[in-house]
Nucleic acid binder design. Structure first.
Lengths: 246, 246
DNA sequence: TATTTGACAGTTGTCTGACAACCTGATACA
DNA sequence: TGTATCAGGTTGTCAGACAACTGTCAAATA
């Protein structure tokens, strides 16, 4: 007889480290730990939980990477006061793995960029707009005498300036994460001067659009700005996005 | 004399663990490590990088928590094949930390929701639309005989259905993260039947808007759907967002 | 007195070594 | 051929050690 043996469901103990992470997380949920508060020291935590210090450290390192706690050498480990920049960093990892810089990533960029540009248009102060224009000029002036990496950074700065005009840290973090993903692509794209000039022109269009406060104008400016890229062949995606003759 | 002392710029070394994380991250970006591939063993990594095994372990634990790699005891550590769902969501920690449903979070939600709804409108197949309508009906039918937690889950499902219609895993992931953040708020809001009914009506408007493929209609449907919420008082934010009489 | 310096205990960062639990593939055996 | 056993490698966890750093407080200094 070749009857299959009964199959048990694989039982898996959560690792000690995961349990520690969970424990601290639960303490946060229950409000037993509040922002700014200091955690027990690592040896103390190890003693309380009956585990080794290494396990505690690994757990804390995870919480730290996620942005929940912050360790200060010589002082202690604290629950963060305000969500740190790192909080959304993992997002870029996820993005990296999920896709190979493909049409999906571009769709995401279009969506996010349109979103934060509209928000920026509605929230920007005069000073914000000045900074944005300043960032645009910086790229403009550097076109002739700067390597493509530096130029890409200036391009990034332009988008960061817009993000700052949203006055929304959350949106800024997501926006940054998305833009950074394109850095290397942009950098390579800027090896040819003509592409840089196209970017400069696109930036100018975006600025005008921001000033206009007109949704359609903003959208077209963004979409156009992304048409002159290494992924021209995926413009199909872009076309899919603007629906109503926008 | 009370001349101010010279001020040095604070110099800070990134920690060894962070450097390791960065190193592996870079290898991923450069494509030197592809999904499914096995990493060197911990002692080997420690040797190659000239660091202790603890540091390597902490770095790997971080990458593991983020969902980038997966460690199999007795076998080795591998780059994950497909981004796992158990990847703990960094965003959800934000809400634990007193970043409670603030105006910023709502802005983000409006931005993301409008984005993915437009994308869904352009990409949805007939089957997708059917699933969306089905999800809407599920909530509708449950209004009278279900607790508010269950109702909130159904509300969530409706948005998930829209997200699936985008056919973009990346957008889905981000969309889910954002929506989940509002789960508890939604849940509480649904304690009163009248609010559920408003949500049902809003869903119907959204479906109509999706069918229409009209940008303006989609935007207004989304914005309206968010007006009947516990954060009515923050509608100012919403008003700021639609710019041109949309 | 007011300020700086120095010593000290406590904390995190990192390394090393050790062992248990576990997986995998090869080997020996029936 | 198919099965059981074994050896080596790998991760999970612990323990101990030391360096680097921080905050505190008393002593020395102006």
């Amino acid at each position: 007889m070749d009857s299959k043996p009964f199959q048990f469901q694989s039982i898996q103990q959560p690792s000690v480290v995961d349990q520690i992470t969970q424990t601290i997380r639960d303490a946060l949920i229950r409000g037993e730990l509040s922002p700014g508060q200091k955690l027990p020291s690592e040896p103390e935590l190890a003693r309380q939980l009956g585990v080794g210090r290494s396990a505690v450290r690994e757990a804390l390192k995870v919480l730290q990477a996620i942005g929940v706690v912050e360790s200060r050498r010589g002082s202690g480990t604290y629950v963060v006061e305000e969500p740190s920049d790192r909080m959304l960093n993992p997002l870029s990892f996820a993005i990296l793995l999920g896709t190979n810089v493909s049409s999906e990533l571009i769709e995401l960029r279009v969506m996010i960029e349109i979103g934060y540009c509209e928000l920026a248009a509605s929230q920007a102060t005069a000073a914000d707009m000045q900074k944005i224009e300043q960032a645009a000029r910086a790229l403009e002036n550097a076109v002739s005498h700067a390597d493509h990496e530096h130029l890409a950074q200036l391009d990034l700065n332009f988008h960061y300036a817009i993000l700052e005009a949203t006055h929304n840290p959350l949106v800024q973090k997501i926006g940054r994460a998305v833009e950074e993903l394109f850095f290397s692509s942009i950098s390579n794209n800027f090896k040819e001067v003509q592409n840089v000039e196209q970017a400069v022109a696109a930036h100018r269009d975006i600025i005008t659009a921001l000033h206009s406060h007109d949704l359609h104008q903003i959208r077209t400016a963004i979409v156009d700005s992304l048409k002159n890229t290494p992924w021209k062949d995926q413009v199909t995606v872009l076309r899919k996005i603007h629906i109503n003759g926008v």
